[in-house]
């Protein structure tokens, strides 16, 4: 039923790993004056945050907190998308008060997911600042949100599908783009 659209690989295993190393360096370069915390957005953002944490800790030589958030309960489009089949737990086992929190996600698209993640983090306390690191920025923002660290900019049309695969969930590290199959997805 689904037409076979050509898929373009925009990041393979090696380039993804280099992109993440660069993002880790960038996070440390903007050396914050408060403790760092990486907070990934479920599911793949959380995996990327877990990969970045040891790199950032090693480069900076200081402790880096790790957490993850599930934004299902903070969506602005509950009605139109329906209930999430699974609501993951949010794990922020450190006090976010006064920390520099780096939100990590795989794809930045409309910005709505990031807005929801920021709301979720504020329900745990008041961080000193929040920054945003993404593996891919595919454009088409609907909110005034911009990333601070980007692994790869990917020019897309709104209907394109950006598909991020990670070893932990998909057995392979790759980012592919499939051209315009209509429906817009933001993750």
């Amino acid at each position: 039923m689904e037409p076979t659209q050509p898929e373009t690989v925009v990041l393979d295993n090696e380039r993804m790993s280099r992109a993440l190393i660069r993002v880790a360096h960038e996070i440390v370069e903007q050396q914050p004056d408060s403790e760092l915390a990486l907070v990934g957005i479920h599911t793949r953002g959380a995996i990327l945050a877990a990969r970045l944490q040891p790199m950032v800790a090693e480069i900076s030589g200081s402790q880096v907190h790790l957490g993850d958030v599930d934004i299902s309960l903070y969506r602005d489009d509950l009605g139109s998308r329906g209930a999430s089949p699974v609501v993951h737990s949010t794990h922020l086992d450190f006090d976010v008060e006064g920390k520099t929190v780096v939100v990590v996600d795989d794809v930045l698209f409309t910005g709505r997911t990031v807005r929801a993640a920021i709301d979720a983090i504020f329900d745990f306390g008041r961080p000193r600042s929040i920054r945003l690191a993404v593996l891919c920025d595919r454009g088409h923002r609907e909110l005034p949100i911009r990333p601070d660290h980007v692994g790869k900019n990917i020019p897309t049309a709104p209907g394109d599908r950006v598909n991020v695969q990670l070893v932990e969930t998909d057995g392979v590290d790759a980012v592919t783009v499939r051209r315009g199959d209509g429906e817009a997805h933001d993750r």
């Binding site: 309960l73 609501v87 737990s89 329900d123 745990f124 306390g125």
Partner: peptide, 23 residues
Amino acid sequence: ERILDRAASFGSVASREVQKVPA
């Protein structure tokens, strides 16, 4: 099982500084 799997994560809302979510 679907409802109770979600209940497990809803339980942790009470331990946050703000004990509610905007769902």
